[in-house]
C-alpha cells in the first residue's frame, strides 16, 4: 500500500474515480481506457470526463457496442504489457462479455502455467434503487463468485474508490471493479495525489462489540444507518466493509465475529448463490464455537428487479431489513 501523502479534500465518488484514472495515466503510459462513449462524452456517469482532452483518442478509446471485443481487446493488450481499464456501461451487460472474463481473463495465467498475465480492470455500474428496471439495476457479483483467478472489488466510499481503483490498475490480476450507481454522487474526504488502498483487505467502517454486520457497496451505508438505529437501543454493532469481494478478507471478518459472537451479512443481491451465502457459511464453519446465534442474512427478494419504484423498494433490502436481522440474531424485540 502507498499511503496518501497529500491533504484530503471533499470529492464525489465519481470525481474520486476520475482522479484514480488520472494519476495512473499520468504515471504509466501503458494505462489506457476503452469503452462506449467514454471519450468526449466522459462516459454515461462522467467517470472519464476530461481525460479525452488530456490524453487523446488513443488512450481514451471509444468503442462500438461490442462488449466481448472490449474485454477481449483489454485482455489481448494486457498479454503484451498494457494496463487497460475497460468500462462496461452497465453491469447487466457483463453477460455479453462473460466468456471473455470467465474463460479467458481469469484462466489465462493458470492454463498457460504463468506464461501470461491479464492485468485488466473492468469498471462497471451496478445496483438498483433508481427505476432502472430489470436490465440496468442488478447486483451481478454472484455471477462471478465461483471464478478462480478473478478479483472482484466493490468500494463504498470515495476515498476507497480512488485508492482501490489505483490498486486494481496496478495489480497483475484481472479485476472486476463494481461501482454502485447510488454511490456516484456521494461525497467524502479524498486525499490528493496518488495512493492505494490494498486489495483483499476489509475495513472496519464502525467498531462495535455486540454483533458484526458484514456489508459492501451501498449496503455498507445501509449497515451504518442500521448501526445508528441499533445504537439508540444500546446495541453496538461493528460494521465491516468488505471492499474486495473475491477473494474476501476472512481474517478481518472472522476475527470480528469471534469477538462479537453474532453476525449479519448484508448484500443487495438475491440471497441464493450470493456472497452473503459464502460469508455466512464460512462464519458458521470457522466460528461455530464462538457463535451465540445463527448468522443472519439480508438480501433482495428472489425476483428480477421491477421498473416501478414502489415494487423495486419492496424487493431491495436496506437499513430496516438489517436492523430487523440484527435484532433477531440478538434475540431482542424492537424498541417500543
Amino acid at each position: 500500500m502507498t499511503a496518501p501523502t497529500a491533504p484530503a479534500r471533499t470529492r464525489t465518488f465519481v470525481q474520486a474515480l476520475t482522479e484514480a484514472l488520472e494519476v495512473t495515466m499520468a504515471e504509466d503510459e501503458n494505462v489506457y481506457l476503452l469503452g462506449e462513449d467514454i471519450g468526449k462524452m466522459g462516459g454515461d456517469f462522467g467517470v472519464t470526463r476530461g481525460l479525452f482532452e488530456k490524453y487523446g483518442a488513443e488512450r481514451v478509446r471509444d468503442t462500438p457496442l461490442s462488449e466481448a471485443a472490449i474485454i477481449g481487446t483489454a485482455v489481448g493488450s494486457a498479454m503484451v504489457g498494457m494496463r487497460p481499464v475497460a468500462e462496461i456501461m452497465f453491469a447487466d451487460f457483463l453477460g455479453e462479455c462473460y466468456d471473455q472474463l470467465v474463460n479467458n481473463a481469469a484462466k489465462l495465467h493458470y492454463m498457460f502455467d504463468g506464461q501470461f498475465k491479464a492485468p485488466i480492470v473492468v469498471r462497471t455500474a451496478c445496483g438498483g434503487g433508481f427505476g432502472g428496471g430489470p436490465h440496468h439495476s442488478q447486483s451481478v457479483e454472484g455471477w462471478f463468485l465461483n471464478v478462480p483467478g478473478l478479483v472482484i472489488v466493490g468500494p463504498a466510499t470515495p476515498a476507497d474508490a480512488k485508492g482501490l481503483l489505483v490498486a486494481s490498475i496496478e495489480d497483475d490480476n484481472p479485476v472486476l471493479f463494481l461501482e454502485h450507481k447510488a454511490l456516484y454522487r456521494v461525497k467524502g474526504s479524498v486525499p490528493e495525489g496518488k495512493y492505494t488502498v490494498p486489495l483483499r483487505q476489509a475495513a472496519v467502517a464502525r467498531p462495535g462489540r455486540d454483533l458484526t454486520i458484514v456489508a459492501y457497496l451501498k449496503m455498507t451505508h445501509e449497515a451504518l444507518a442500521a448501526a445508528e438505529v441499533l445504537a439508540k437501543e444500546g446495541i453496538e454493532a461493528e460494521v465491516i466493509d468488505l471492499r474486495t469481494l473475491r477473494p474476501w478478507d476472512t481474517d478481518t471478518v472472522l476475527g470480528s465475529v469471534r469477538r462479537t459472537g453474532r453476525a449479519v451479512v448484508a448484500s443487495e443481491a438475491p440471497r441464493m448463490g450470493g456472497l452473503g451465502a459464502d460469508v455466512s457459511a464460512t462464519i458458521a464453519e470457522e466460528c461455530w464455537a464462538d457463535l451465540k446465534a445463527p448468522v443472519g442474512r439480508v438480501g433482495a427478494l428472489d425476483t428480477p428487479i421491477p421498473f416501478s419504484l414502489v415494487l423495486e423498494k419492496l424487493i431491495l433490502p436496506g437499513k430496516d431489513q438489517i436492523v430487523q436481522a440484527a435484532r433477531q440474531v440478538l434475540g431482542v424485540r424492537p424498541a417500543a
Partner: peptide
C-alpha cells in the same frame, strides 16, 4: 473467443 483477444495484441503493437 480469441478473435476478440487478438484485437488487443494488435492494438498494443499499433500504439
Amino acid at each position: 473467443s480469441f478473435m476478440a483477444t487478438v484485437l488487443g495484441v494488435a492494438l498494443a503493437w499499433k500504439m
